[in-house]
Design a protein around this nucleic acid. Sequence first.
RNA 1: GCCGGUGUAGCUCAGUUGGUUAGAGCACGCGGCUCAUAUCCGCGUUGUCCGGGGUUCAAGUCCCUGCACCGGCACCA
Length: 645
Amino acid sequence: MMARFYLTTAIDYVNSRPHLGTAYEKVTADVIARYRRLCGFSTHFLMGNDEHSQNVYQRALELGLEPRAYCDQMEQVFRDVWAKLAVSFDDFIRTTEERHRVAVTTLVQRIADAGDLYEGEYEGWYCVSCEAFKPDKDLVDGNCSIHQTRPEWIKEKNHFFRLSKYRDRLLQHYEANPTFLQPDARRNEMLRLLEGGLEDISVSRTGQSWGIPLPSDPSSVVYVWFDALINYIAAVGYGTDDERFRKWWPADLHVVGKDITRFHAVVWPAMLMSAGLALPRRVFGHGWVNWQGQRMSKSLGTSVDPLDAADRLGPDPLRLYLVKEIAYGHDGDFTWERFEERYNADLANNFGNLVNRVAVMAHKYRGGRLAPVPGATPQLADRAADVVRRYQAAMDEYQLHIGMAAAFDLIDATNEFITRSEPWVLARTPDRRAELDQALFEMAEAVRIAAILLWPVMPASCTEILRRMGQVGPISEIRFDRDTAWAGGERQIVKGPPLWPRIEAPGAVAAARGGVTASTGAGDTMTDETEPAAAPRVSFDDFMRIELRVAKVLAAEPIPKSKKLLKVTVDTGSGERTIVAGIARSYTPETLIGRSVVIVANLETAKLMGVESNGMMLAATDPDGRPVLLTLDDPAAAPPGSRVR
RNA sequence: GCCGGUGUAGCUCAGUUGGUUAGAGCACGCGGCUCAUAUCCGCGUUGUCCGGGGUUCAAGUCCCUGCACCGGCACCA
């Protein structure tokens, strides 16, 4: 039986479209999946969407849609992005699917049967003003530290999972399986957490309909996190197809963001232990990709920008950047400057130029037909074998960036080899014919091997390079072990246009991207690029429910102990009111006084740092995340109270 | 304030379980080649590995501590 490999990524919330950070996770997982397939594993690569979130429910309601319909639209948005990035998942699961419902119901029942689910009450001090339970540490003399009021002792019915029961077994598992959670920094974090002890966790929510009912208490739904994790077994037939489940479970690898490793490396294994199921073999917590130095934000439309590199240059250069330039497991950064630098250095100057010069020489000197000289000792073969070995060792341990570096070592070695062997000199010397034959063959052979190594990252480009290097037969028949070995045999080299033309002007891709956005308006739709077509518009009536008004700042003062908040008193035309605004990073109180601003006048009140805020000041967010206040073109013309629309 | 992360060449970053003389790419300087997308190859310059203390035969790496910067939350709903 063929060895099998099952890997998953986190399923994504659908309340915003995918951004570079999400794409990073999928691309790296895709590279692993493609590498495994190349190695001959029967591979199952799962992705999907997480739809049972209250945010999703709310978002759908705001848009006037059935939640399911909203999720249908978002699924297409996600699939389109994944297609654009050449992400080759084998299955795409949604938590609203029947197979998922069955799996959740079955697993929760198994956990209940094991005695690990109990009905309890969540109780604690509840501060009404904060609308939150307050841990003891947040109480000062029994009062809420923020509101100075005595909180209420409240009990709320809930179903709990006996997570605490599994602490020792989890520790043992970590002990026995040092690579269960990678990288080590994540593992150490979890060990510390486990050593500190675990508390049982609430796994149900009452009063909600959007979710999967708890078998034992249909008035509750399974908490979205508990629900979501189960997708990994639901997708391979748990509760619906035993044979399929036996084939694929346990997963070989869960690729997840470092922020949710706890769920995957503690909660999820405990759930599986409770249900008597095998644990995933490994969890990998990858880092963040920042954009121009700042953290990706789901709410920033601009955050999808780097994905447009895939529109302009195809997915491969972006994929290479993400995999090669960011140490897997660490945080990384995407900037256009660096992207263009890497593109020119690695792709245009090195790999692309190498492919081109080899093909051109093959044709110029030998009409494209190359073959090794019988009995000749290849000079590049050892180097290639060493690279393949290092590449494989790195990739098997998910050290993707090291694998990439190894592959590029072979490219460097080939460029060096060409300089050393000087084919153009050999070509001028008739009695060195055999040397030229051998040299031309070797460089083509090295490029062929490099193209296989880089194929998981740049599938389209490398398929084309393999074709040019004389590969016959489909890529799917290439097998890593056999086909990365130094080969002989005659082959026909094919010429072609440069794969990666140099980006000449600094900032060209980023700038061109802006131009493209503007010119694609030719589709004469009014669609805003930054909002997915699937996010329908709010109605005019809905918009008019938001009361925007001009207000004039009368006074402003910092709020003690707060970094971002200012307490601002404004004149709304019909009186004064206090607004707490998170603008202290950009504005000092003095600069605000006398200024006309735009406020949301009918926003529900909120208490922030003990100050009641009655409204919201509108501000844009600059690329560094700092607020920039909206001001009026002619403040004198629109007195406080003027409606904004 | 709490939690987490980072600090290595001018810039962006690698540095395996502690182990010789601390690396790569870009940039810069010099030289070479002409098959190639003005590409490639060779040589070269720049380091208080943030500071201080400790463990060790040996510390960029481990421990303690200080500083700086970043992020998340507390608080921008």
